[in-house]
Nucleic acid binder design. Sequence first.
DNA 1: TATAAACCCGACTAAAATAGTCAAGTATCT
DNA 2: AGATACTTGACTATTTTAGTCGGGTTTATA
Lengths: 141, 141
Amino acid sequence: MKLTSKGRYAVMALVDLARFNTINPVSLRDISLRQGISLDYLEQIFSKLRKKEIVQSVRGTQGGYILNKKAKEIKLINIFEAVDEKVKTVKCKKESKKGCNGKAIKCLTHNLWDELENHINNFFDKKSLDDLVKDNSERRV
Amino acid sequence: MKLTSKGRYAVMALVDLARFNTINPVSLRDISLRQGISLDYLEQIFSKLRKKEIVQSVRGTQGGYILNKKAKEIKLINIFEAVDEKVKTVKCKKESKKGCNGKAIKCLTHNLWDELENHINNFFDKKSLDDLVKDNSERRV
DNA sequence: TATAAACCCGACTAAAATAGTCAAGTATCT
DNA sequence: AGATACTTGACTATTTTAGTCGGGTTTATA
């Protein structure tokens, strides 16, 4: 399984975006400065987010990005999927001849990983961007 | 976060061991053959499991490993911890000056990762080796 | 007591993934 | 025209992973 910086950055950037999401687009430069994430890396990340229609881009001066849906409708699972952070447990491939062939002993952990994946995806499927924004603004009262 | 082959192998090997766990120790060679995991790699893994007192070794001919506790008392979390598969989300380090200093904007995802870690650890904390062994023998009825 | 089975241990390495950087654009506002 | 900001693709250093390898030590048994 993996859950790395790219996914974290994506979430951070989107929370930032959701917060400052007025009528005006938010530039990556601003996000970069506020969140301390390299501009180049942000560009990579937002390119993916745009392709998955999580954000919309506005080109030119005063341009930037805006959310493409309401923050409530953007689930964390969508974000992770967009930046290739599939919550994947390691599956059996090479061993298909030996441990995991459906017949003999069978991969002893197959069910376990499936169960775990569901468990985690369920977590990410419930949490929306909006939840995080709220969490965050509550904390600063 | 990571959850890789090493953790999966550890679990597979221990389920195997728990199943064949009679009075006699089970050799890594047998596990290697049954599960299709390289013997050398198994040795590495069992060295760690032994240090964390999850298994006991019996040296010499006819030697091998036995469980050090009842299968019911060995939780998956113990296994993953033993082989260094901490369920770790990526924390903020470098950014401590910028995004995550407790004052300014503060790392927008800190709470999220803590919550997720708890969620996953909770899962692994409930599942015991015994649960897996049972799952597995049920399936072969 | 020799031998073989099995554990023990540390160093090494190839391959993959990660976390970026860099360069050269294009679009749009003023 | 110029500045701002998005767009794209290639490149790269570092780290992690998934092992391998070579040398041990211990102990049952013939």
